[in-house]
């Protein structure tokens, strides 16, 4: 079972994957809602997984990891970059919200850093979690630490790539159009049609042949 919780602040999706009463948390963007949902469902989280280092995807990482005392999985570059307000972009978070919504945030956003992940990998990582196969592949372009997470050869968690109806963004600080074109675009294009796409913003959807 996969549940999505969208944070109020910038509508960043957090996904909870459940199996046998246990859960994985992908991108802890809204701590209270995550904890409330897990409590309500009676699910015990095992890991936190990060799609990339940007502030809106790690907004409540420290709160959730401290609450449950569970390890974080991330690419090495993501792990490194969550530790700086410049590279996790929390230094310009309010401005991002303003440009996205046209409204100044009602209260100043926090500028924050997170601790390094407990489990890191440079380019790829695989694991089996309660019968589910996961493959992690670093796909730079949007950010150096971005990762594609493939689950059971039928679903992908794409972070800030493949957001429905939006072009992939490579112009934020740390982004690279060159890396995107050379490394990431071929990977995204190779995702088979009919895979279920769970992006970091907006609705999930089924990939069609003519769309990323």
């Amino acid at each position: 079972m996969i549940e999505c919780i969208a944070s109020e602040r910038i509508e960043t999706n957090c996904y909870l994957i459940e199996e046998e009463g246990h859960a994985l948390i992908i991108d802890p963007s809204c701590g209270k809602f995550i904890i409330d949902k897990l409590t309500e469902k009676g699910w015990e989280p095992d890991y936190i997984i990060l799609t990339h280092e940007h502030y809106d995807h790690i907004w409540d990482l420290e709160e959730v990891r401290d609450h449950y005392g569970i390890p974080v999985i991330a690419s090495s570059l993501c792990s490194e970059r969550v530790q700086s307000i410049q590279t996790n972009l929390s230094s310009i978070g309010d401005i991002l919200i303003y440009f996205k919504t046209g409204e100044e945030p009602s209260e100043p956003g926090k500028r924050f850093t997170c601790r390094a992940a407990e489990i890191t990998f440079d380019e790829t990582y695989t694991m089996n979690w309660r019968g589910h196969d996961f493959e992690f592949q670093r796909i730079p372009g949007h950010s150096p630490g971005s990762v594609l997470i493939t689950m059971d050869q039928n679903s992908v968690f794409t972070g800030d790539y493949m957001i429905y109806g939006e072009p992939d963004m490579t112009r934020l600080k740390g982004g690279s159009k060159k890396d995107y074109d050379r490394i990431t675009l071929p990977v995204l294009d190779a995702i088979p049609a009919d895979f279920h796409v769970y992006p970091g913003h907006g609705p999930d959807y089924i990939k069609k042949n003519d769309t990323k």
Binding site: S91, I92, D94, L96, Y98, R171, K173
Partner: peptide, 26 residues
Amino acid sequence: DSVGHMDLMADFEAAYGIQMSTKDVL
């Protein structure tokens, strides 16, 4: 544009060791 503006502001904050208010950025 808006994306370039955010990058520019981030560079100034890092270069001068300051934290700019949203009003000043705008």
